[in-house]
Design a protein around this nucleic acid. Structure first.
Lengths: 132, 132
DNA sequence: TTATAATGATACTATTTTAGTATCTTTTTG
DNA sequence: CAAAAAGATACTAAAATAGTATCATTATAA
């Protein structure tokens, strides 16, 4: 099982690149060259980050992207959620009929614990920590 | 993201059913009726559990399945691994070129922590705990 | 000793999710 | 106005997941 999908991976890498260009506007072309991420896919990812308010975009010649938030305020969970949806590890292990043990089932509480732990761990990681 | 996939879910349900039939041999037919799992899919799942040594099978008329191990010694991790492969949350978040920070990257250690926690939590859950 | 009811082995198909592409529109700057 | 950027959006490809089909083998019991 994967905790991090491809687009989250790309997103973090792209954000990292932009963060290092602090102050400057970074164009997709520069990123494609440096990061070896397929251009149209990268564009899609950046557009999503822009809509989420993580990136600020500038159209037209000389345009590109900038962080809309300082790197130390961009949380990994936010990026993951943007691309992978909410961090829910299981909706309902046993569906409908079979498992009416929700309250007493120890598995459910285990999984809830895990989910909380994961969220807590990831929430403490910001973009700036990942850059080094 | 899903921690538990469909076949793991089915597997646990089927094992639970078999466990409750303690002593008796349980046929696929009985399980299909009770569990509402598609028959050929359930058969495939049971065959895998048999190969893994979790179930013992009996061919021929009156045949079926029995637990090969007591329910309190069947660990959820074993079932998950049988169907979902080893519990590795990420191979390498940033691939090849970009991230040579493996040793110092805080994200890597975070994810390793999470993985260890998840494994530990799940390893403590046995089939008999899930049954109630 | 043969019909039947079970699993074993295995190959196939369908669906869903993930990954990636293409293209046309809009905006900005020189 | 031309060129270079992003915005919007719809499409295709690949991989993972879910499910099906079928024939071979084995055991029981009439």
């Amino acid at each position: 099982m994967k905790l991090i999908t491809r687009d989250t991976d790309y997103a973090v890498r792209a954000l990292g690149f932009i963060a290092k260009n602090k102050g400057d506007v970074t164009s997709v072309r520069d990123m494609v060259d440096a990061l070896k991420i397929p251009r149209p896919f990268l564009r899609k990812i950046l557009q999503i980050l822009q809509k989420k308010g993580v990136l600020e975009s500038f159209k037209g010649k000389g345009g590109g992207f900038q962080l809309a938030i300082p790197a130390d305020q961009i949380y990994l969970t936010d990026i993951m959620e943007a691309f992978q949806g909410p961090l829910k590890m299981t909706e309902c292990l046993f569906r409908k009929k079979l498992c009416p043990h929700v309250k007493s089932c120890p598995l459910k509480s285990k999984i809830d614990n895990i989910q909380r732990y994961v969220a807590r761990e990831l929430r403490s990681v910001t973009l700036s920590e990942v850059l080094i």
